[in-house]
């Protein structure tokens, strides 16, 4: 059972205080978009064995959404960061690189 640290209220809580919210940094496609783009937005998800970015909400807590960078195999959490960004901040990317040099995920690296 994971521990996650909410970047908004600073609480390190166990997983049951949070609700998982799927893949992070999805790009929304709306009216006017192609079928392929829209399908990708609705249904295509990364399924990596390793570095992954995901959304969490602190439901039994401050109620805020945040992002987490986490390894899907070892469950190491590289860091948690604000939800109001469409890509991981440099500090998070650096933290990952320190542990997993050469990592990639979609178009981040």
């Amino acid at each position: 059972m994971l521990i996650l640290t909410c970047p908004y209220c600073g609480v390190s809580g166990e997983e049951t205080e949070f609700h998982a919210g799927g893949e992070a940094h999805l790009k929304r496609f709306g009216p006017g978009s192609s079928d392929a783009d829209f399908e990708s937005y609705l249904f295509h998800r990364e399924n990596p064995k390793g570095v992954h970015f995901e959304r969490w909400r602190h439901v039994s807590g401050c109620g805020k959404w945040f992002h987490a960078a986490r390894c899907t195999t070892t469950l190491e959490v590289f860091g948690t960061y604000t939800a109001q960004t469409s890509e991981p901040p440099q500090s998070i990317k650096d933290a990952i690189t320190a542990k997993r040099p050469g990592w990639t995920w979609r178009d981040f690296a």
């Binding site: 929304r28 909400r57 109620g63 805020k64 959404w65 939800a83 109001q84």
Partner: peptide, 13 residues
């Protein structure tokens, strides 16, 4: 309520 917060916090911030 969660749905509204989700869109306000993660898309239309």
């Amino acid at each position: 309520f969660a749905h509204m917060e989700e869109w306000l916090q993660t898309e239309w911030w």
